[in-house]
């Protein structure tokens, strides 16, 4: 996998976790199940560390796209971008280097990650 894509995936998962940890409805529901979500600061530190691993150009794009859409990577499932639900051109969808090269959705601009079957 492309190392920058790996960082972007980890970042996106962390961003979602931070959002959930700050959402009172989610924390209340999870608290009732017995799950503690108290150390949000540690997640913010992890986010910062991951952001520092991005190249300047990708960091710029990450900041721009997450500000607009709240995320940066879209899963591709059965040839469809699951951010905008537009089909990925078949030449890219069938490429040998998917997940090794950074591809972006031509429609929504998200970086693409082909999920394991």
């Amino acid at each position: 996998m492309n190392p920058q894509l790996q960082v972007l995936i980890a970042l996106q998962d962390i961003l979602l976790m931070i959002r959930e940890a700050k959402d009172p409805t989610q924390t209340k529901a999870l608290g009732k199940m017995g799950f503690k979500m108290t150390n949000v600061e540690s997640l913010e530190n992890t986010r910062e560390n991951l952001e520092n691993q991005l190249s300047p150009a990708i960091l710029r794009e990450y900041s721009r796209v997450t500000k607009r859409h709240g995320r940066i990577v879209a899963p591709v499932i059965r040839g469809t971008c699951h951010a905008c639900f537009v089909r990925i051109p078949s030449a890219i969808d069938a490429a040998d280097d998917r997940n090794k090269t950074l591809y972006r959705c031509e429609n929504c601009g998200m970086y693409l990650y082909w999920v394991d079957k």
Binding site: D13, I14, M17, A21, F35, K36, M37, T38, N39, V40, S42, L43, T46
Partner: peptide, 8 residues
Amino acid sequence: SREELGST
């Protein structure tokens, strides 16, 4: 990271 947030 989830475990750092709080044990599951």
